[in-house]
Write a protein that binds this DNA or RNA. Structure first.
Length: 578
RNA sequence: UACCCCGUGGUGUAACGGUAACACUAGAGAUUCUGGUUCUCUCAUUCUUGGUUCGAAUCCAAGCGGGGUAACCA
């Protein structure tokens, strides 16, 4: 379409129920043919992958139907909100590939008008100032099965309510002593309609309005008003607000707002091995179980970005999982796969030996260094080629050698021949062992000069190809291997009296301090992504890397069918011995 | 024991009254200078029971199962 197509949302694989609803509204000529959505985060934490779903949904809808999407900070509770969060949220939405143009709003921008609507409600006898404290209010509210009782303050006169409301605003009353409540129905089976609180007294400084206000509107009251004032057509939120919809409609219909937006709910995202609740993520940060909101193990957008996820992969993921009204949990492999799909096409390859084992090519001259040609990306010829240095002393992966390998092990072992990627066929002639520890310290090989480049003229086949790095020319760097932050599929499912923290995976981070890397990797740009052949995709950490000292984060490993095979065999072996 | 919402392969979604589709996983095989990629093939009495209909995953009813809701949070 245009040269910015890479920042556009992924085309929908199928129309979901909200697409259809919007389509029907358009066909029926509702809202004057407009589609206007909004993404309304509360700035009280960092955005996570669940928000990414909502962002893709809201901005995607606008893109698909030629509409607009606003970014709005739902900042009605100054006690938990901070500018740091406001900034990170904007960064993350932009990074995901979405633009709100001039349409950046804050609920707090509307405080004066929202207050005006409150006076209007009071004047119409639809709201009143209530002197009940939190405990009494809760008692009067009744229960899920028992109706509530009218507040003794429900019948106050309009004049008295107006006066009290204004004095609340001026800060004359202590925090928690009074509220403004909608006069709806204390016997409603929907708890949200039992005279919900519209305004509460909060003597907290707001990150934007400072100390101008000592009362703040509640979500249920402010949200429909903001939507209407921004002329939103489709107000999309998650399922837990479903029971709030009648209240949303009540506010909208009882205030003289300029528009009539409608709330549509969808199921929030759940992913296996992840916790996606801001409260719990905050705890992980505060209790130092992770290094911060952008810790690469966090499900936050900033964490995933630092880990090496691309915006494209996140958008693809959001497109693939769909949108529905059924509460479900998506397998994390779905996410990982979206990343692999993307990086397989884009990431340049390199050879990196994470756990080096020395190899000596006995028949290779000790004073020779060769430059061999390697493809930068076999999936993309345009990525070109590069030169890799080869010499007598090499490092290979410790896992690629076995003293006594099984027959289906295609790598190196005594008498076995393998191909060194882009180099030569080598045959193992022996190995050295530390007599004290039993550890293999060096492998001896001979090479076949006729196989230079990796092909044998005699048509001889080898089963395995392994990566390597020249010992003389290798560069050392730190590599961080990440695994799921939680060790169980459903971390929030815990036993009696337990906390989700018990499910933290103690091995979620393994640091490899001295990986031996192909030389060019020493200059890898922070944020650049690479495939370490036969290992996975790695991203140069933007926080801890220094010039000449990059730190690599493993974003996701490659699929490993050998590991799977081995695991299965072990399981079988265990079964036999039982 | 109130009200609201939801039940389609292992997982996530599609099928819009005309005979269950797609993606991922898993299994089998082929290709491969990454045990990667790619490519084949295999895996469902649509929660149950009734009803409406020539015909039901789709409509209706009941049951069963799951989720949400009693902050002056969002």
């Amino acid at each position: 379409m245009n040269d910015r197509s890479d920042t556009n949302a992924v085309p929908p694989v199928a129309l979901h129920f909200i697409d259809e609803r919007v389509q029907a509204d358009l066909a029926a000529g509702r809202y004057g043919g407009r589609v206007h959505t909004r993404f309304p985060p509360e700035p009280n934490g960092y955005l996570h992958i669940g928000h990414a779903k909502s962002i893709c949904l809201n901005f995607g809808l606008a893109q698909r139907f030629g509409g607009l999407c606003n970014l709005r900070f739902d900042d009605t509770n100054p006690t938990t909100e901070e500018v740091e969060y406001v900034e990170s949220i904007q960064r993350d939405v932009r990074w995901l590939g979405f633009e709100w143009g001039e349409r950046l709003y804050y609920a707090s921008d509307f405080f004066e008008r929202i207050y005006g609507f409150a006076e209007e409600l009071v004047r119409h006898g639809k709201a009143y100032v209530c002197d009940l404290g939190p405990d009494d209010m809760s008692r009067y509210r009744g229960s899920l099965t028992a109706p509530g009782t009218d507040s003794p303050y429900r019948a106050r006169s309009v004049a008295e309510n107006l006066d009290l409301l204004e004095r609340m605003r001026r800060g004359e009353f202590p925090e928690g002593s009074r509220t403004l409540r909608a006069k709806i129905d204390m016997a409603s089976p929907n708890m949200n309609l039992r005279d919900p609180v519209l305004y509460r007294i909060l003597k907290a400084a707001h990150h934007r309005t400072g100390t101008a206000w000592s009362i703040y509107p509640t979500y249920d009251y402010a949200h429909p008003l903001c939507d209407a004032l921004e002329s939103i057509t489709h107000s999309i939120c998650t399922l837990e607000f479903e029971n709030h919809r009648p209240l949303y409609d009540w506010v909208r219909d009882n205030c003289s707002v300029p528009a009539r937006p409608e709330q549509i709910e969808f199921a929030r995202l759940n992913v296996t091995y992840m916790v996606l609740s801001k409260r719990k993520l905050l705890r992980l940060v505060n209790e130092r179980r992770v290094l911060g909101w952008d810790d690469p193990r966090m499900p936050t957008i900033s964490g995933l970005r630092r880990r090496g996820y691309t915006a494209e992969a996140l958008r693809t993921f959001c497109e693939r999982i769909g949108v529905a009204r059924f509460t479900s949990t998506v397998d994390i492999v779905q996410l990982e796969n979206a990343l692999r799909d993307d990086l397989n096409k884009r990431a340049p390859r390199a050879m990196a030996v994470l756990r080096p084992l020395e190899v000596l090519i006995e028949n290779y001259p000790s004073d020779t260094v060769e430059e061999l040609t390697a493809r930068n990306n076999p999936e993309d010829p345009a990525a070109g080629e590069r030169k890799v240095k080869f010499s007598k002393r090499l490092f290979i992966e410790r896992d690629d050698f076995r003293e006594d390998p099984p027959k289906d092990f295609y790598r190196l072992g005594p008498g076995r021949e393998v191909r060194l990627r882009y180099a030569y066929y080598v045959k193992c002639t022996g190995f050295d062992k530390d007599p004290a520890t039993g550890e293999v310290t060096r492998v001896h090989c001979t090479y076949d000069p006729a196989t230079r480049g990796g092909d044998s003229p005699d048509g001889r086949k080898v089963k395995g190809t392994i990566h390597w790095v020249s010992a003389e020319h290798a560069q050392r760097a730190e590599v961080r291997l990440y695994d799921h932050l939680f060790g169980t599929e459903f971390p929030e499912e815990v036993g009696e009296g337990q906390d989700f923290m018990v499910n933290l995976n103690p091995k979620s981070l393994e640091v490899v301090r001295d990986a031996a890397l192909e030389a060019m990797l020493i200059d890898a740009e922070p944020g650049s992504r690479w495939q370490f052949e036969r290992h996975g995709y790695f991203c140069v950490d933007v926080v801890d890397s220094r010039p000449g000292a990059p730190v690599f984060n493993r974003a996701v490993s490659l699929k490993d069918s050998w590991a799977k095979l081995e695991k299965k065999q072990h399981a079988k072996g265990a079964e036999r011995t039982r």
